[in-house]
Each structure stands twice: as C-alpha cells, then as structure tokens.
Design a protein around this nucleic acid. Sequence first.
DNA 1: TCGCCGAATTTGTGATCACAAAAATGCTTT
DNA 2: AAAGCATTTTTGTGATCACAAATTCGGCGA
Lengths: 252, 252
Amino acid sequence: MPRAVAPPDATDTSLRQQVYESVREALTMGRFAPGQKVTFRYVAGVLGVSLTPVREALRRLVAEGAFEMNPNRSVRVPLMTRDKVLELRDIRMELEGLASAKAAMAATRSQIAGIRRAAREIIVARNRGDGATDRQKVREYHFAVYAAAGQPTLLRLIESLWLQTGPYMNLLYPDFISSSRGPAGRQRLIEALQTRNAAAARREMAEDIRRALSYVADLADENGNIAPAAPTAVTRRRRQPAGAASFDLHAN
Amino acid sequence: MPRAVAPPDATDTSLRQQVYESVREALTMGRFAPGQKVTFRYVAGVLGVSLTPVREALRRLVAEGAFEMNPNRSVRVPLMTRDKVLELRDIRMELEGLASAKAAMAATRSQIAGIRRAAREIIVARNRGDGATDRQKVREYHFAVYAAAGQPTLLRLIESLWLQTGPYMNLLYPDFISSSRGPAGRQRLIEALQTRNAAAARREMAEDIRRALSYVADLADENGNIAPAAPTAVTRRRRQPAGAASFDLHAN
DNA sequence: TCGCCGAATTTGTGATCACAAAAATGCTTT
DNA sequence: AAAGCATTTTTGTGATCACAAATTCGGCGA
C-alpha cells in the first residue's frame, strides 16, 4: 500500500507516542466502555510509565475528539448518541467524498492496484466469516483511497473522524454486512478512479458511508444512546517493559 | 451572538488552558513568523510558567495543525504553501458549506438576527477602513452561522481549520476586500437562511471561501511559498503574573 | 577563507514530588 | 435505616530535576 504523502510519525520513539498508539488502539478495538473514566495513573500503571507521557498522550486524544474531558477535569470515553453519529455521518460523507474525488484525479496505477487488492482481501475475509480481518481490510481499503488523494491535512482530519466512529463499527457485523451492496459499490468506486471520474468516486464513497452510519444511528435506544458491540478478542500488547499488561474493560 | 451548542472550556482556569489561549491568539494575530522555531522554554519564560503546562498546550496545538513538529523533535510554525492553501480551501468549502446548509435548516430567528448584525458590523468597519475590526467581525459572522448549525463536532473541525489559515487572512487586505462581492454574498446567504434554502446557503458560503483562498493561493512565489502579511499591532497581553511580556516576532 | 571536528550549550523528555480539588469512605445523628 | 458531615483516599496539576539528543560555537588545519 503505497503512501504518496504524509509521512507519519513513523520514527517517533518517544514514550508519549507509544502511549498514544497503545491507548488509541485500545479505543479502536472497543476495549474501553463508553462513559468509562480513564485515569492517568491507571494508564501509567498498565503501561509501566510515569504520568508525564500519559498526560500528553491523553490530552492529544482529547484534542482529537477520541476522549472528552469531564467538567471537573478528568478524562472519559465519550458516549455515542444518535445525533452524534448523524453529525459524524454527514461530515464523513463530505470529507471522505472529497478525498475520493481527489483520488480519482490523482491516483497512480500502483495506488489503484493497491486499492483493488485491499478490496479483494475484504471479500476473502468476509467469505471466511473473519470479522476482525474484514474490518481491518475495510480500513486499509478506505485509507488506501484517501492516501491516493495526496492531501495530508485531509487525511489527518479523516483519521480523527475514524477514531471517533471506530469503536462502533463493530455494530455493522454481521447483520448489516450481509445485507450490504459492499463489493459492488467498491467495484464501481475503483472503476471511477480508473476513468478519472471524480464525481462518481465521490458519490460511491459518500453513499457507502451514508448507509453504514445510518444503520448505526438506527441502533440507538429511546434515549438516543448507542452501546458499542462487545470488544474484539483481546490480543496481547507487544513491547511494554516490565509487568505491563493490556487494557481491560471496566478497569479502575 | 447566541451559541446554540458546544459550550467551550469556558470555565477551565488551568495554566495549560491559559497558555493554549495565549499562544493561539499570538498565532492568529501573526505574531510568529512562518518556519520560526518555538521552544518550550521560550514560551514558558514569556508567560512566566514552568515547562509542564507549556508542553501540553503546544502539543495540543500540534495535534490541531497549528504547529508542526520537526523530524528531530522541536516545534515550529508551519510554512504556508500554495498547495496547502488549496487543500485547506477545498476542505473548508466542504465543511463550512455543510455547516451553512445545516444552519439554514436549524437557525432560530434570534440566531439569524445575530448573523445579520455581524454582517452589518462588517460593513461599518470596512467603511471606516478599520481592517482589524473588519477581520474580527468577519470571524464573528462566520462562526455565528456555523454555531447556528448546532453541530459541535463540525464546529470544532472548522475552528481547527481557521487556526491554520488565520495568520494568512491578513493578505486579503486591502486589495482583495475592495474588489470583493462580499456584502451581496452575505446578504444572499442570510436570505437563504431565512427561506430555509440549504442548497443556496451552502453555495454562497462555499463561493466566498473559494474566492478568498484562491486569491491567497495566487500570492505564492515561484517556489509555492506564501509569506503572511505583517502582524497586526501588538496589543498587550492581559493577565500574566510577574514580568511577563507578550510574544514577539522572531523571538528566540 | 572555508570546511571539519570536538566541546559547550541548548532543548525536549521522562520521572518525581508537593499540593489542592474532587471523590470515596465511614462515622454519627435522627 | 437513611441522611448529613467530617475524614481519608484518589486524582489531576504544576514545578523541578536529571539526562540524552540536538544544536551551536570555537578553534584548528588546509
């Protein structure tokens, strides 16, 4: 998967960055419960570091909307509501539609090949009933498209939005997925990229997002709240110096 | 100017927040030179605080795109290029267009009145040749529209984008402003809000942004770089305990 | 005068500490 | 047993310190 632009903090080995990535992944994997308070000392304890890097990592996640601050200064996982999902849906339709349109105008042959490969791998995983790999490949497919747009700021914004919706994408499995027109839509998008049809690319991507997030919004209870699906299987953390474990749900 | 939504960190009195606001304002006012390295100890010294709150404030600004990190861990003011302006232009057209469309569907009478008032104040300032007030009122006008949309996440994203383009909006004065169709466009937008014409509201706002940022992009030199206009007059900082001064250009 | 190399300085990072606000606990009283 | 209140514990905040990496500076040699 070639990345045309936006070299990420690949070489950042600071503890702050490691903590950021660990917590971010735990969040994406749904390993924190919505509304759960996450204390600095808890994270520091789990990862075996001091408060300093934890504070900076968590504050960054707050700035990105992945966490929110209590009025009285503590950090918690945001509760998802129908209104919030609908807001995110409309924003994502705009931005990811824009990125797809730009990708249609800028994508190279090899980038399109990478997108096509990711699309194939989605089908393979889906046929196997492998939901975890499915989700992973869907993400790769999407970001392969967005990376082909060659717009670093746009890519950053989209990543921030995925961080907010990520824990709730589990809810699409398995019911929504099986009824989805997914493969055909992706096929049309790829054709649009090849024919440099920006409007068609935008339309396909926006429509995909509309369907998925509208489905999630409809899962809200009478109060408008949406509970995330059960977290995916807890895979052990790598790294982590001494006695550090992975995050656990309902910790603290 | 009624704020329908998104109660900001109004009651956050932490040093971190104060540092964040100070640096953010200095950045918006163009008091830092593009490419300038901003060291933690310098900011801490100017504001009379320790490194701790400064680090968190600057890291947040990095996360918001207002600063960027050197590969070898230091923070600097991003250089603006034509490509970046064009990218920001297209993103802003989408998001601020979306916000305007939502505002057309949701704005209350009193919100529309506030928007109209801001539009009038722009004209007054412009007739006086008061560029600083002009810019201030333009900002108020835009955010009055966006606040009327009632979409907190969208508002946050737009604020982040303004933070990135802010220091370069000086460049519109006075040449672009005098040739602009500004007042008429704002009048049409307000009419669209009143008639609940979302498509028209979106079109007017997007067109405004397109013209302004296209103009800025055309100011790039042969290398694609864009220099910001001279900073506006340095107004003294408030607060600041002991011996602390305001930021100065080319500091360090 | 220019380029190179080692020392001195600057600067970001992470840990630790003291402190105050907030939250939790437990005791008392009705 | 429930509600109020004081005490203890938890938790975020900000300052300070030690350290290593990066940068700057100064002098030497070509």
